[in-house]
Amino acid sequence: MIMIIEVVKIIVLPLIALIIGIFLMGLARMITARIHWRYGPPITQPLIDMVKFFDQRGISHGFIFDFGIILSLAGSIVLVLFIPFCKIAPLSNSGGLLVILYLMLITPLGIALSSGASGNPNASIGISRKFMLALGYEVPFILIILTIMKSYNSLSLIDIVNVQQAGTWSIISSLPLFLTGVAYFLILPAILGVRPFDMTTAPQEISSGPKVEYSGKYLALLSIEHALTLYIGLTLFVNLFLGGSANFILFFIKILIVFIIGLFINAVFPRFRIEQALKYLWGIPTLLALAGLILTMII
């Protein structure tokens, strides 16, 4: 019986993540439009796009072009199972935060393989930017994860959530954690790959970068993967800093608030160039996170 419940959780969790992700994508397009003084598309627009993409007949550049995109989406789906959603995380006890750090690699690597195999220089430039950006945001991100691990002295995300549930949210529990929380919020758009950090998929410069040769079902899988990435980045923030929640509604509201605050930044900023992004990411967020880690080590 317990087995069946576990299996059901494993099946349902990616679905919930997908629904939340697609909802957030639609919401993003709508709110951005309102900020721009436009009417904007209906909230179901990402879903309509996805239906269309699945019906189109795409092109393929060979086996690895297909395999890479499958691998990247599979990586995202597995990652969803590792991050607690309302304290449900079927696989979170099989390696903790260190495994999450490494599983986060599969998605970009899959896309990199796939779009590299397309043989389009625009895709290659996009991928090289993506990896540079990843190197940029991983430095503060690792610092943040280490600070959390150190201050809760645990590798397990579910333990961290439980401790926060018993006490206060970690972002207001102590000064170092507050600093790292701010740092995480500052790099969140880079992790999600949205403006001002969308130089990876800049349509005007490099013809939307890695996805230049994608069409049809490839784009559909890519937008599913984007939805899951949104979900993962936000839930990780909510679990690490805002205490997660056992209650579905509360959890969702937390995600929503973080996302909408992020959107306000996203909607009004132009795009960074990659070296500006690196300078930014290795500047204030890294310093804040470093200060957090050092303070945690001292205290």
Binding site: S207, S208, V212
Partner: peptide, 14 residues
């Protein structure tokens, strides 16, 4: 144009 679902893309593949 986005309210009609029309959105410009960069590559003919999309």
């Amino acid at each position: 144009a986005e309210r009609f679902g029309v959105i410009p893309v960069a590559s003919p593949r999309q």
